[in-house]
Design a protein around this nucleic acid. Structure first.
Lengths: 262, 262
DNA sequence: GGTATTTTACGATTTCTTTCGGAAAAGCGC
DNA sequence: GCGCTTTTCCGAAAGAAATCGTAAAATACC
């Protein structure tokens, strides 16, 4: 029946690539159509869509999938913040507790990094290096904290600066600890982000930090984003919440990484 | 326009997305209309509206739904309190009018520069270079505008970055116009600022701008701040308000400087 | 042999509809 | 204004159809 052009036998990766291309082109795809197009069973297509959805490349719906921009917005920002504010705060406390007076630390543009910043407000002689507008804004009323930002181009999605022309200027700082949020944490890929630009920004910073601390809530474990910015052996510590399976934590601890579940 | 009927079979997510779009566009929707439009029962529509209401995306009413009054508290500067808002806005308009599509411009951390930024929101292919957090924050929802910030240390009083380690990175931009607020404008001292650090930041930037535009309201004329950052012969244009004496303006015009009083 | 991929089978889940009792708005007579 | 009826709208329940996920079997490939 498959009189369409794509009767060719495709490898799994090729098929998923093609599905992704189609979603981005048409905005939506249905399981039934794809099944006919590629001459595979619907179960296979569902597995494909599931995989793409796991990487946040498409949004799964009943009967098919749509592009992210056609999907419903997440729970509104305010309610999501209130929902997870407890966990974020606890992660923020744990992170802030690791910062000594006199330290220079890096905070990225994740919301968890912002939580750490909030906990640092009363500190003195702390230098915060960050590419996040929100972190800088937050520290406006923290007179004991010096804030340094690398230059760059504003990325709207995260209110952060990317494509820094010269991170060299930061090399004169001896950055004791770097706190990095991530979109995914997995053993083979390490820390990943959905934005290649953001990852490009973080990669050299990871190398500049004496101690790299990943801050990832339970939902991020096992997920893989578009671009990797830190291998697992570059990470010294992971701060997460208590909803992570012991199995996963053991797997990461086996790599010699400290795991703190708050 | 308006009555485009949707007979297509939509996924649940798509239908809700479309409903949300309609609510935000029209302000209100009715259960009956939506039921006909999407060819589903009213019960289904009610479930949709309920779901959207649960996420605070719409407000449920009898017979339909209306937009959620999304009054997100803006965390921008409290500079709106000043009584010179009107004049600031007019100066902002005059400044924005000088910016062409395709331009790269510099905006400093003055409140008048922020007023210019507000007027640039709808523009496309404009690059704004600024050391002001407020300007960057303001442009977060201006997708046609590229924002570039030089790196530096946060100065709390003005929410700006100073002591940039490498303005060299900005030299690759051909900055057509630079808008500089100042604490004082006088013939012998030129443009002055109260902060030496801030002045140190602006001085090289003045040299990098093809056209230097000073934005100073009437109160700044004849005043002299701590540190000078631009001689009068480096300035090409002054935007000010109409409360400046003709005598002052003539004196500056005599230097070959264009003076615009709004 | 072994591994990776896909299919088939089937019970579970989601989505949508119809139905129905009750609540909310709208008319209406006063 | 006040009570009354009528209409509209709501939410819950139950059932039908489509879709889903899982797990074991089948196929392909090395």
């Amino acid at each position: 029946m498959g009189t369409r052009s794509v009767t060719k036998d495709l490898f799994l990766e090729e098929r998923r690539q093609e599905i992704l291309r189609r979603v981005n082109e048409l905005g939506r795809v249905s399981v039934g159509d794809l099944s006919q197009e590629f001459c595979v069973s619907e179960v296979t297509i569902r597995a494909d869509l599931q995989a793409l959805a796991d990487s946040n490349l498409v949004v799964r719906t009943h009967g098919g999938a749509v592009t992210a921009n056609r999907a419903l917005p997440d729970i509104s920002l305010s309610s999501r913040l209130t929902q997870q504010v407890r966990e974020k705060d606890r992660i923020g406390e744990a992170g802030a507790a690791m910062v000594m007076d006199g330290d220079a630390i890096f905070l990225d543009s994740s919301s968890t990094a912002l939580a750490i910043a909030r906990q640092l407000k009363g500190r003195r002689h702390v230098t915060v290096i960050s590419n996040s507008l929100a972190v800088a804004q937050e520290m406006l009323d923290a007179p004991g904290v010096t804030v340094v930002m690398p230059g760059g181009t504003l990325r709207r999605e995260t209110a952060s600066l990317i494509r820094a022309d010269s991170l060299d200027a930061l090399r004169r700082f001896n950055i004791q600890k770097g706190f990095f949020g991530a979109h995914g944490l997995s053993v083979p890929e390490g820390l990943t982000d959905v934005s290649a630009d953001e990852a490009d920004m973080k990669r050299p910073l990871v190398a500049m930090c004496r101690r790299v601390i990943a801050i990832v809530d339970a939902t991020k474990w096992g997920r893989v984003g578009l671009a990797s910015f830190a291998r697992l052996d570059q990470i010294h510590c992971v701060i997460t919440d208590s909803h992570v399976s012991a199995e996963w934590m053991d797997q990461v601890r086996a790599q010699g990484i400290e795991v703190i579940a708050v």
